[in-house]
Amino acid sequence: MEIVRAFDAIWAARWPILDGIANTLLISGLSILFGTALGVGVGLLLSYGGRIVRFFVRVYSDFLRGTPVFVLILACFYILSVIGLQLTAFQAGIFALMLFCSSHVGEIVRGALQAIPPGQTEAAKSIGLTFRTTFFSVLLPQALRQILPTWVNTATEIVKASTLLSIIGVVELLLSVQQVISRTYLSLELYFFAGFVFFLINFVIEKAGRIVERKIAIPT
């Protein structure tokens, strides 16, 4: 029975595989965390920056969004070391995913802020609110609700993109499973297993996102 053999193989390799899962979670988590922080900055600059700042941030964002993540990862790993920045494969990978994530989050934030009707800012001004208060009390709470669903989507994209780190030798879930396959030749079963774990991770993220979305929904 191939299935039973597959389970045996997974069980036997449970520690390396769990390590791989942990790495996948760590890589994704850190990339999303840093990428979101940077992306919020990008979004704010795109929304409120001066013309020159906006131009450069726009170039940054368009360039990153127009580049395949695969290329970004290779570039961060190989090019950064050429210019003297010695990063491990793990660090370079997270760096690449963070950049990718930030460009997407930047656009999401910009779009969400832009989608708020100008009347909101005008009403805030009319009751004497400063820009700061307007931003934190009026604009941000509305923007966050807009951002959440797309941001969750970006987060799942990052989880999926983290598999690409295997090509620079980072032992995340996919590579740890491939290593088991190379010993057991149970490729179908084990790839299916890896796919299932990725699905599970993203399923949890999406489910959590939807719960939060419902919690913060504005009653109508």
Partner: peptide, 15 residues
């Protein structure tokens, strides 16, 4: 601005 109050055509309440 807080010396005057304003009501708008489209209300502009904070949703």
């Amino acid at each position: 601005r807080a010396m005057t109050g304003m009501a708008f055509q489209h209300f502009n309440l904070f949703p």
